[in-house]
């Protein structure tokens, strides 16, 4: 059997594929963070908690209301997005003029409260969510056995990422949004409702986290701590990609997923740190991140 760097090519391809799956989650979460940071200048520490909330809402929908996976995929992001809007209107909007630190502290506190609330009710071991009937089973790719659900994760997240990028970079709405970030006063003077745009942006970012949560529910245990395990890595992804860069966070998300996956084969002990090593190197060479613009 042929080998790459001393491991069989089959195993290598398999790990590449799995890296892509994880990268899809990184991409989706860091995309939400990037959108919120780019448009609102808020470092949203509650993003992991929103992701967890998405997964829990999917589970609760199934458990208490009998709402299946597919409707949940649509409904849950709406609910999480709405929750985000309430948070933005009631708390965050007063912080835009202040230092970044205040937004960070507020959202961090919010994350702790959400996690505490769910831990208190459901405990830390979490709840099981089964893979929907249509997507159970696996494809035999020749080099590996790829569960259908994981393939679906890649497709769904790439779709969502592309749609977000398209909306922000290529549509009229996106142009208004970007203008509002660049110069809010002038944009407002053109008769565009900037606070409304900002509110919707935060809601959208939260909805993205909720969507990622529903996608993740069948593959990892739905537990109150699932967000905090992931969020630090996702922040590193955003920093590497360049704070606020949409395309940057998508590409770095996928790329780092793959790098992390390969590290798990060559030197598994380092798989939790490799992302941060890359972050340190990137910050030394390009302080604004790979895709960020120097200001």
């Amino acid at each position: 059997m042929s080998e790459i760097f001393g491991i069989p090519i089959q195993a290598f391809m398999g790990q590449l594929m799995l890296g892509l799956v994880n990268g899809s989650f990184y991409a989706m979460l860091s995309l939400g963070l990037a959108v919120i940071f780019g448009m609102l200048n808020i470092i949203n520490f509650s993003h992991g908690a929103l992701y967890m909330m998405g997964a829990f809402l999917a589970w609760m929908g199934l458990e208490y209301l009998g709402i299946g996976y597919w409707p949940a995929l649509l409904l849950v992001p709406l609910v999480v997005g709405l929750f985000g809007i309430v948070v933005e209107r009631s708390m965050l909007q007063w912080l835009y003029k202040l230092d970044h630190l205040y937004g960070l502290l507020l959202t961090f506190g919010l994350a702790l409260m959400l996690e505490g609330l769910f831990t208190n009710i459901y405990g830390v071991s979490g709840q099981p969510y089964t893979i929907p009937e249509e997507l159970s089973g696996a494809f035999n790719l020749g080099f590996m056995f790829l569960p259908k659900y994981r393939a679906w994760v890649i497709v769904a997240s790439l779709g969502v990422c592309f749609a977000t990028w398209f909306m922000i970079e290529k549509t009229r709405l996106g142009a208004n949004l970007r203008a509002a970030t660049e110069n809010p006063q002038l944009t407002q003077a053109f008769g565009i409702n900037v606070p409304l745009l900002v509110m919707l942006t935060y809601g959208f970012g939260a909805a993205l986290a909720g969507f990622a949560g529903v996608l993740a529910a069948p593959v990892i245990q739905v537990s109150p701590l699932m967000g905090s395990h992931l969020i630090i890595t996702v922040f590193a992804v955003v920093v590497i990609g360049g704070m606020g860069s949409i395309l940057g966070s998508i590409i770095t998300g996928l790329g780092l997923g793959v790098i992390e996956g390969l590290t798990r084969v060559f030197y598994p002990e380092a798989s939790a740190t490799v992302v941060f090593i890359i972050m340190a190197i990137v910050l030394m060479l390009r302080p604004a991140g790979l895709f960020g613009k120097e200001k």
Binding site: A11, G14, Q15, L18, G19, V21, N22, M144, R150, V219, I220, M226, H229, L230, G261, R264, V265, P268, S271, A272
Partner: peptide, 10 residues
Amino acid sequence: ASDFSSFLLQ
């Protein structure tokens, strides 16, 4: 670790 699939493949 949030994802075990790589380790399980090994």
